[in-house]
C-alpha cells in the first residue's frame, strides 16, 4: 500500500518546478550553451539528506532546443553527489570542499568532470531574478512578492520546527482530520442532491436551447 507522500507526488511536483525554473534560466543565459553541449547526455544525481530521494539532472541537446530534465532516477548517473543542504550552504560560504569530504559531509562518486561541468554551468547563470519577474508583473508587485516569500519561508521553517518539536500534538491534529461515518453519509447525500440539481440544470439548458432554436426558426419567414 502506498503512503500519502507518494500519492501527492511531491517529488514529481518538485522535479517539474525545478525543470521549469532551470530551463527558463538557461533560455535567458546564452553563455551557457557551450557548457550544455559539452554535457550532452550526461546526468548528475544529487542525494540530499533532507529530501530523502535523489534528484537527477540530465542534459538533452538537439538542433532545436537544449534542456535539462529533472527526474528521481538515480541508476544512470555519471556522477553522484551525496550531501545535505546544510553542507552545501557551508560550502558556499567557506568553500572548503576537501575538508567537508574528509568529514564525510560530502561524497562524490563517478566522473568528477560531470560535476565540474554542471558547477560551471550553474555559475554561468547570472540572472537578476527580481528584475526578470518585475519585467512581467511590475516593480511594486515584485517587491510585495519577495516580501511574501520571505514571510512564507520564515513561517515554513517555524512550522517545521514545531512539527519536529512536538510529534504527539501533530498526531492529535491528524486525528481531528479523520472523518466519521455519519460525515461520509452526509457528504454522499449532498453529492446526490448536487448530482440531481446538475441534471435538472442540464435539462433546463436543453429546453432553453430548443426554445431558442424554435424562436429563430419561427422568425425566419418574416426576415
Amino acid at each position: 500500500m502506498s503512503t500519502f507522500n507518494e500519492q501527492v507526488m511531491h517529488q514529481q511536483a518538485l522535479c517539474s518546478a525545478l525543470e521549469i525554473i532551470i530551463n527558463k534560466a538557461l533560455s535567458l543565459n546564452e553563455q551557457g550553451t557551450e557548457d550544455l553541449t559539452r554535457l550532452s547526455q550526461k546526468t548528475l544525481t544529487i542525494i540530499l539528506e533532507e529530501l530523502g530521494f535523489p534528484l537527477s539532472f540530465s542534459v538533452y541537446t538537439s538542433s532545436k532546443n537544449n534542456q535539462i530534465l529533472v527526474t528521481t532516477i538515480s541508476q544512470s548517473a555519471d556522477c553522484t553527489i551525496k550531501t545535505s543542504i546544510k553542507t552545501l550552504i557551508q560550502l558556499q560560504k567557506e568553500k572548503k570542499l576537501t575538508e567537508l569530504i574528509k568529514q564525510d559531509k560530502l561524497d562524490i562518486d563517478g566522473d568528477i568532470k560531470t560535476a565540474q561541468g554542471f558547477a560551471s554551468l550553474a555559475e554561468s547563470i547570472d540572472i537578476d531574478w527580481q528584475s526578470e519577474v518585475a519585467r512581467h508583473i511590475g516593480d511594486i508587485p515584485t517587491y510585495k512578492l519577495s516580501q511574501l516569500l520571505d514571510k512564507l519561508c520564515s513561517k515554513l521553517s517555524f512550522a517545521a520546527k514545531q512539527i519536529t518539536a512536538d510529534a504527539s500534538e501533530w498526531l492529535v491534529h491528524e486525528k481531528r482530520l479523520v472523518v466519521t461515518r455519519s460525515q461520509i453519509m452526509h457528504f454522499n447525500s449532498q453529492v446526490d442532491v448536487l448530482s440531481r440539481q446538475t441534471n435538472d440544470l442540464a435539462k433546463r439548458i436543453d429546453q432553453l436551447t430548443n426554445l431558442m432554436a424554435e424562436t429563430t426558426q419561427n422568425k425566419k419567414p418574416h426576415e
Binding site: 507526488m9 514529481q12 522535479c15 517539474s16 527526474t71 528521481t72 532516477i73 541508476q75 544512470s76
Partner: peptide, 16 residues
C-alpha cells in the same frame, strides 16, 4: 496527468 506520467517515467528507471 503530467505528474502521473512523470511518476511513471521515474518508476521506469530508464537509462540512456
Amino acid at each position: 496527468h503530467r505528474l502521473w506520467k512523470r511518476f511513471t517515467i521515474d518508476a521506469s528507471g530508464v537509462r540512456p
